[in-house]
Design a protein around this nucleic acid. Structure first.
Lengths: 165, 165
DNA sequence: CTTGGAAAGTCAACAAGGCTGACGTAAATT
DNA sequence: AATTTACGTCAGCCTTGTTGACTTTCCAAG
């Protein structure tokens, strides 16, 4: 056991352990999206609307292209979602003051109500999981997830200043 | 600070921390699926085929209904995927010996080749993340993910005996 | 002041992968 | 013999992603 590659220290890198991690991601993500999905079904909205509402809430006044790069979809795809949200009065698109080509996105009161409903549900599950796992586990959870992201996404994740208007 | 609810010990349960966890899941899952998606694009296959191949590999001889409950989709949806995999010679469906209604699913050599390519890519990212985060973080990662699952999924995740034939 | 190009929006067409409902068949179970 | 189970299939629908082509607006550089 002089060889560090055969020592106990690296047992967490075996293919079997990695497979368990992969499956954990798969099953956990299902749980992660289950509650908002349940709320959304019945309304005319889906997961794509949830994501848009979430990130507009997080960064009020964000522009369309900003949102595009966060969500990683095409503008046509986002536009379809955004249009219904604006038509239904959940989102307001304000023409930029400095650059009038830009649209700064804000939630209306109605939009904030939906956002709260969705995020309350999602946070409730998250909170239960965090509480059950404890602070040390949560720290590890965040560390591994961050290491799994593409560098570009990691930048999106870490830098939330944004804002503007 | 005699009240435990205001102590430092629960700071990891604030809404802000939970929001960070939610976004970490979102961005990490994108990274998680990126590499297999890249391999699959160009072939006639997608993420659904990957999932089927993964779980058939994990539990050779599993039945169709078994797979249905693991993947959580309708039989029509799974059938569309399974049919192409069988037609293309990646998966073999053997009629059950004891119960001839059942189809026991196995990967062919060709199927194993694709499985290996996909899981190698996915494991590579996972391994890099694990290595960067360290064993303690990995332990926490798994603990939190497990706590996030629906109870039913947790059972699927934990009990992998299965097998059959 | 003109113009090139970025930002935003729109139309059309298409694909993957979910879903429901209805129906058929073979085999096991009662 | 009747019912239930496991599986397959046809048809049709929805959401959410894609590409391509085109227009309008408007900032900024020449």
């Amino acid at each position: 056991m002089a060889d560090p590659n055969t020592g106990e220290g690296l047992l967490f890198l075996t293919d079997e352990q990695l497979r368990k991690g992969i499956e954990a991601m798969f099953f956990a993500y299902r749980g992660f999206t289950a509650d908002p999905d349940r709320i959304l079904e019945g309304m005319d909205y889906g997961r794509a609307h949830h994501r848009a509402v979430h990130f507009i809430h997080r960064s009020p006044g964000t522009t369309v292209s900003n949102l595009l790069s966060i969500l990683g979809v095409t503008k046509q795809s986002l536009n379809r979602v955004l249009r219904t949200l604006i038509e239904d009065g959940l989102v307001e698109a304000r023409v930029g003051r400095k650059d009038k080509r830009e649209r700064h996105l804000h939630l209306t009161e109605k939009g904030r109500t939906l956002e709260r409903e969705l995020s309350d549900a999602q946070r409730a599950r998250m909170r239960a999981a965090y509480r059950a796992a404890g602070p040390a586990a949560v720290q590890g959870f965040r560390t591994v997830l961050e290491a799994m992201m593409d560098p570009e996404m990691r930048r999106q994740y870490q830098g939330l200043k944004d804002g503007g208007s």
